[in-house]
């Protein structure tokens, strides 16, 4: 309760601030990337959104919201293959506080659906809200809609999950981790959990295809969970020795910048990740971190 009150107050405060400062300055003040480090993950994610101006900037009362974590694997939170449930919980709380009418969570899992939702800790976390507004839904194959990808260079259409397109607000919450083919799995890769079809086929030209996909599955907000990062044997890991604790969350309205920064956490450069490069070329965001307005905070 304390923490929630804190966030509410902070939101009120920032709202007051943005009223008092002239519009131009307020727009400048908002960073492209908010990077917050700390041990209390609920607070960390709370502050990261706070630095971007608060959830009220993105969610209007009555909005339908999708929060798309990575819940792809039958792994526990400490194994770092899935988004940490606390990071997601923090987001749900803020979204509800902003007056969202519904919050849908889902992932098109790789392991068995129920096992993933259960052992990732996501199912219990969502149940703890006890709210009909918050739904963790198993992928329902009736809800895939063929979508034409107009700007696609490598794919021109794909089946996309209904809520991923229809929601007013789409919050992408990837976990930052190693991946064999793409080297890292970040925000753009996480969108694969919002599509249907023979997903393995994306691998045949993964970087460009993820960028193509990002033209139609475009998050309002990307929140990269780097509280723990999986360094090897990704994307599903399984060995806690492969996990490094960073206690960090990166929030951004620019999906490419979020991925670009996430890459640096692994000692790699943004241009090492094909999807980042492809998306940057398509004008979906900024990968040059020198041109990005970073705001860091340690709790």
């Amino acid at each position: 309760m304390n923490r929630r009150q804190f966030i509410q107050q902070a939101i009120a405060l920032s709202a007051g601030l943005s009223f008092s400062i002239p519009e131009v300055f307020a727009a400048k003040a908002r960073p492209d990337l908010a990077i917050v480090t700390g041990k209390n993950y609920l607070d960390v994610v709370g502050h990261s959104i706070e630095l971007l101006g608060g959830m009220g900037q993105f969610v209007r009362p009555g909005d339908t919201v999708v929060i798309k974590p990575n819940i792809g694997w039958d792994r526990s939170p400490e194994q770092a293959a899935n988004t940490h449930p606390l990071v997601v919980q923090g987001l749900i709380e803020m979204v509800l506080d902003s007056g969202a009418s519904s919050v849908d969570l889902f992932d098109h899992t790789c392991n068995e659906k129920r096992r993933c939702y259960q052992n990732s800790g996501m199912a219990d976390m969502v149940i703890s809200f006890g709210s009909k507004k918050v739904r963790l839904e198993h992928i329902d194959k009736r809800k895939f809609i063929p979508v034409h990808i107009e700007r696609g260079k490598s794919i021109t259409s794909w089946e996309i999950y209904k809520q991923a397109i229809t929601a007013d607000v789409y919050i992408n919450v990837p976990v930052a981790k190693h991946h064999g083919l793409s080297r890292l799995s970040l925000g753009l890769k996480n969108s694969m959990g919002a599509i249907g079809g023979n997903r393995g086929k994306l691998h045949h030209d993964l970087g460009q295809r993820l960028a193509d996909l990002a033209t139609v599955v475009s998050p309002t907000l990307t929140v990269v969970d780097a509280t723990r990062t999986l360094l090897r044997n990704g994307p599903q890991g399984g060995n806690v020795d492969d996990v490094r604790l960073l206690d960090q969350v990166i929030a951004s309205v620019d999906p490419v910048a979020a991925d670009a920064y996430g890459t640096t956490l692994f000692g790699l450069a943004p241009e090492d990740i094909d999807s980042t490069v492809a998306a940057h070329k398509m004008g979906l965001g900024q990968m040059d971190l020198a041109k990005v307005n970073l705001l860091k905070k340690t709790l």
Binding site: N111, L181, H203, N233, P235, Q236, G238, N239, D242
Partner: peptide
């Protein structure tokens, strides 16, 4: 297998291999 027969990237198998040391 595509990377051998077609020169096409893939390794979906590697991605899903569940042993902690793949």
């Amino acid at each position: 297998c595509l990377p051998f027969a077609g020169g096409v990237p893939c390794i979906v198998c590697e991605e899903h291999c569940p042993t902690p040391d793949k």
